[in-house]
Design a protein around this nucleic acid. Structure first.
Lengths: 261, 261
DNA sequence: AACCATCGGTTCAAATAATAAACCGACAAG
DNA sequence: CTTGTCGGTTTATTATTTGAACCGATGGTT
């Protein structure tokens, strides 16, 4: 593994739940020698991707990420373009809408929007990792990846997250084939027990699936009528975001979505 | 220089004006061997910090920067916290307000707000580099850096950008001392000929100056009254942002700003 | 106070990973 | 058909990275 990759993996150790990390912890978490870790994190620090704060000298993500993000959004307004669609989707369905993007080999939440319609709602966090096998977004993105990628994911440990999580690779393969045939995916409490969600895939200019948009609702509110409404709204949001991104919807998906409507 | 730093410097080559770069260009710009450059950019690509697009296989900043930025803002809402203050500042002064942050050894624009008061305005770009010697933000940030940093900057080539750009290191040193004595800095057409601007420093929790907030106006509108108004609004915005960031205003600055008001 | 563990950071010989130059096939212009 | 460029690959050589031991500082325990 290259030195650069090792350094970048240090960045992945910073999460919502663990925003500050000391040098020794960092070395342990990354399974690196302390000296190595120190050199790497120092270089990240010099660049501003991480910064060191306080008396405990802990590290956290630095301001340079903001600058890079501003540049990226100026060129490719991925998040900015999708957010209004997401908000409209949340409003139309009365539930929580969220957007996720495939980054490397992980699916990350990039943004979400709440509805003002109900007192209870599914809450989300930005920048969290979504498991491929247990979320509607994960399933739908995985379903539309090249087979090699699918098998790599299925070859990894598949944790049971709730009583309704499917963990058998063979069953998941069948599930993914079904998703490809439908043009959307559904999760019924496989990630969090009370949450049902439906997701549709998003595509880039080369027709590759690079993310998903989903609606997550409390299980108790997910009637058959509501399901239909959500699927319809999702199909429309999915084509809109794909088009805003300059992507192209594969012809078969467009057909599937038209039929569903 | 470490391998990681070399890789990260590749990221700095992507700018507003040059968002897409091919492998050979990248190697030339970074002054790296093509093979070296390929390895480095590939690792950045694998991580998602950079992505490769189109038929020409050019590279651009990738989606991972969005995720990191979302994490950072969740922990330290630098930009998000400052933007409302910036908007109020633009409204109050009738001119363009902007925020810049010291990242590594460069000062970058992090955000800006326009006033709706005039038909003409100073326009800004996100994520652009501000020269230390020719902008009010640059001068004020440089003035409050440790001497070693100041001298490093002054030792570098100092380009003349307009007819009114001061380029003599000795004169700049005197200018910086004056800025320290005033608690704010002013640029009269030293960056762009028709633009006058005034800036105040921002401080972190350890009392280090990490950025600046500035108001940029067309020279023709910069009367003595307007100057006073802007200085007053800036002092208030400066303390507000510093405090929102959890920073502490050095006592002497607080005094200077009180006197000016 | 003495002890012990841990912290962030440093040192230096030994091991490993990065590098430069040459090369590849593909493409485009002349 | 030559010439130059592109993105990408290969290889022996070289320089960087690495690991273990070591610092002084800090803070809790006996």
């Amino acid at each position: 593994m290259g030195t650069v990759t090792k350094a970048l993996e240090l960045l992945n150790l910073f999460t919502k739940g663990r925003p500050l990390i000391g040098l020794s912890d960092l070395a342990r978490l990354a399974d690196l020698n302390k000296a190595t870790c120190y050199r790497l994190i120092s270089e990240l620090c010099d660049f501003g991707l991480v910064e060191q704060i306080g008396t405990a000298r802990e590290y956290r993500l630095g301001p340079a990420v903001l600058r890079l993000s501003a540049l990226r959004e100026a060129q490719v307004p991925t998040r900015e373009a999708a957010m209004p669609v997401l908000q409209a989707l949340a409003q139309k369905t009365g539930e929580t809408a969220h957007l996720s993007l495939l980054m490397g080999s992980e699916l990350h939440t990039l943004g979400f929007a709440y509805s003002t319609g109900h007192m209870t709602r599914v809450t989300m966090e930005d920048a969290e990792v979504l498991p491929f096998h247990a979320t509607s977004s994960g399933l739908v993105v995985l379903a539309f990846q090249p087979e090699a990628f699918r098998e790599t994911v299925l070859a990894q440990p598949i944790p049971r997250l709730t009583g309704r999580t499917e963990t058998a690779p063979q069953a998941l393969r069948a599930r993914l084939a079904e998703v490809r045939g439908q043009g959307f995916a559904e999760s019924r409490g496989a990630f969090q027990a009370e949450v049902h969600s439906i997701a549709v895939p998003l595509f880039d200019a080369l027709g590759r699936c690079t993310g998903a948009v989903a609606v997550a609702a409390l299980a108790s509110r997910m009637s058959e009528d509501q399901r239909r409404l959500i699927r319809f709204a999702l199909a429309s949001a999915g084509s809109e975001i794909t088009s805003l991104w300059g992507g192209t919807l594969p012809a078969d998906i467009a057909t599937l979505w038209r039929l569903a409507a």
